[in-house]
């Protein structure tokens, strides 16, 4: 047995691990409607290469959802142009789910849902009424 490792210096902030607390979590909009699942995270100020000291710490700049999931499942790369992002500044709250401060309809990640709703599901009789 080796000696137990020292505790990391404490910080005055809530500490989370990306894979454990952020990845694969449900994202809800301001009204509590499901938007997407967090398939990946975009980290700003983090590039390949030497890390110079005194540089500001990288931050999470966006939640990514959509086509990137196939990359996580089967490998390969998603072209940067096809990343569907939700800016980190839109996140209002984080507990066991992400809650956004905007409505689902205003986000790019829900384009297919909106297209289906207006072109297909909404056009079937009864599709736009509450169930009875």
């Amino acid at each position: 047995m080796t000696d137990p490792l020292p505790q990391a210096p404490s910080v005055d902030a809530r500490v989370v691990d990306a894979r454990l607390h952020l990845l694969d979590r449900q994202v809800l909009d301001v009204e509590g409607d499901p938007v997407a699942t967090v398939d990946d995270l975009e980290i700003a100020d983090l590039q390949y290469g030497e890390r110079l000291p005194d540089r500001p710490a990288p931050t999470i700049s966006a939640l990514i959802s959509g086509p990137i999931l196939t990359t996580r499942l089967f490998g390969g790369r998603t072209p940067p142009g096809r990343l569907q992002k939700i800016g980190w500044d839109l996140v209002a709250d984080l507990d066991i789910v992400f809650t956004l401060e905007v409505k689902s309809e205003s986000l790019e990640v829900t384009w297919f849902e909106r297209w289906l709703a207006s072109r297909v599901i909404g056009r079937i009789p009864g599709g736009d009424h509450d169930p009875e």
Partner: peptide, 8 residues
Amino acid sequence: DVRFALDH
């Protein structure tokens, strides 16, 4: 995993 600090 990657650890982050969430500013209050």
